[in-house]
């Protein structure tokens, strides 16, 4: 994986370490990163994005403790081999939680009845 695969938005209300963890989660869930893929070093990510290396370490540490990444001796961080390729439905749904909350909020602000929103969402979700 290359450090340029990550997008950092410093001005976002989401702290940078969380932005990194979220992106790793999505890249792994989406299959762009496979088990065993090596991650760029903390220094590479920090230098590429001009961010504090401690922020990158914090993100990697959090991803490691969540089981997304594992530390390979002498090689650095890699996508965990034990990453459950099929996370439970609840786990996958939890990944959508922020977007769902935002959607619910917007719908309330627009005073839209929930059945109308759900109907539209249902249509979007149809294969």
């Amino acid at each position: 994986m290359d450090a340029s695969l990550l997008t950092i938005q410093p001005a976002s209300p989401e702290p940078i370490y969380r932005q990194i963890v979220e992106q790793l989660r999505r890249l792994i869930a989406g299959g762009q990163l496979a088990a065993g893929d090596l991650l760029p070093s903390v220094r590479e990510v920090a230098a590429f994005h001009a961010i504090n290396p401690m922020t990158v370490s914090r993100a990697y540490g959090m991803a490691e403790s969540e089981g997304l990444l594992e530390r390979l001796r002498g090689k650095g961080m890699a996508v965990a081999a034990t990453t459950r390729p099929t996370q439970t439905q609840a786990q996958r749904l939890a990944l959508l939680e922020p977007q769902l909350q935002a959607l619910a909020r917007h719908a309330r602000e627009l005073e839209l009845p929930s059945d109308a929103v759900l109907r539209r969402l249902g249509r979007l979700l149809e294969p």
């Binding site: 230098a47 001009a50 290396p53 401690m54």
Partner: peptide, 12 residues
């Protein structure tokens, strides 16, 4: 470049 330099020196 300045930010990168400062960040790496602090971190490393």
């Amino acid at each position: 470049e300045l930010l990168r330099e400062v960040a790496l020196r602090a971190g490393e």
